[in-house]
């Protein structure tokens, strides 16, 4: 079997990327960023707050953490609910104790079902980032464009109605987008998305949308759930990352440490202490600036 001749043709082999979504830019060559009060490292904590229907639809794909057994999967349905009822409140208390504000990437189903949770987020001064509708609201190429447009609108409209504020940020489930997503987000008035993990500072798509990179490697899902490491190791890795970025920022300009956490992973009794110690450690660094996503975007935009 011989490959078709087209397999050795490379029509997008050219300077820059093989797509027109955003331009190439080396972080090293950009004008250095400074954060408010001369802080060197922006620490952006983002919590994913999710509701998993017990009936997964798999259109276009099943979200990570979704139901795993034949119906009815009490095990995963309730373990995810544990995150919202218990784990998330442990996280809220930890943030309050540390005195930090964060982003909460929230399924709009959480707002519809549990308005108290939304009120508690808003009362603490945290930011809500739109995180689709519920954990069946996945996006990938193949999802009809009208369905994707409607899903984005439903998420934003519901979160605005329940929280009183229209989210300006968007996080897709599993960071999965279709070819249409950047334009649909822009069309819906979204200012920034968090899906592309190619950088360590914000950057702009050609259509004007901003990407605030939420590094999936620096998440409890990746380190604890996927790589099966402990919460103590997770905390150590975040501190190692902070130390490196802090040193780098001395000569290369402001850096950002995103920390992506999940209530049903880090919010467990045997893990939360390690996370609280991590927060206490980082809050004690004079060079750390804790800020929600939109505040970081504001600081960055003002310097472009």
């Amino acid at each position: 079997m011989t490959l078709d001749a087209s397999y050795l043709r490379y029509p997008k082999r050219r300077a820059g990327y093989d797509h027109d979504l955003y331009p190439w830019s080396a972080l090293r060559e950009r004008k250095p960023i400074t954060w408010p009060q001369g802080k060197r490292v922006a620490v952006w904590i983002c919590v994913s707050l999710e509701w998993f229907p017990i009936l997964p639809t798999d259109t276009p794909f099943r979200a990570p953490g979704h139901m795993a057994t034949p119906y009815p999967d009490y095990r995963h349905y309730t373990a995810r609910d544990y995150g919202t009822r218990i784990g998330f409140y442990r996280l809220l208390d930890a943030f309050a104790k540390a005195g930090v504000t964060v982003s909460v990437a929230t399924n709009s189903a959480i707002a519809e079902r549990y308005p108290q949770v939304i009120a508690d987020i808003m009362a603490a001064g945290h930011e809500i980032i739109a995180h689709s509708t519920d954990m069946n609201g996945t996006i990938a190429t193949g999802l009809p464009i009208d369905d994707e447009r409607a899903l984005i609108a439903a998420s934003l409209d519901t979160l605005e109605r329940e929280s009183g504020t229209r989210p300006t940020g968007w996080l897709s489930i599993a960071r999965s987008q279709s070819w249409n997503t950047p334009d649909l987000l822009r069309e819906a008035g979204v200012r920034y998305c968090c899906d592309w993990v190619n950088d360590e500072l914000p950057w702009r798509f050609n259509n004007g949308l901003i990407n605030l990179p939420l590094n999936h490697e620096l998440s409890d899902r990746q380190i604890i759930a996927t790589h099966q490491q402990s919460a103590e190791s997770f905390a150590e890795q975040m501190i190692d990352a902070f130390d490196w970025l802090s040193a780098e920022a001395r000569t290369l300009g402001g850096r950002m440490l995103p920390i992506h956490v999940t209530p049903y992973i880090l919010g467990l009794p045997y893990r939360i202490d390690a996370f609280e110690r991590l927060l206490a450690n980082l809050v004690g660094r004079e060079e750390a600036w804790f800020a929600p996503g939109e505040t970081i975007i504001d600081a960055w935009s003002a310097q472009q």
Partner: peptide, 16 residues
Amino acid sequence: HPDVVGYSHRDHANRV
């Protein structure tokens, strides 16, 4: 396609 995490994870090498 686009596999956003797969592609952009590797793109990190060439930007950062």
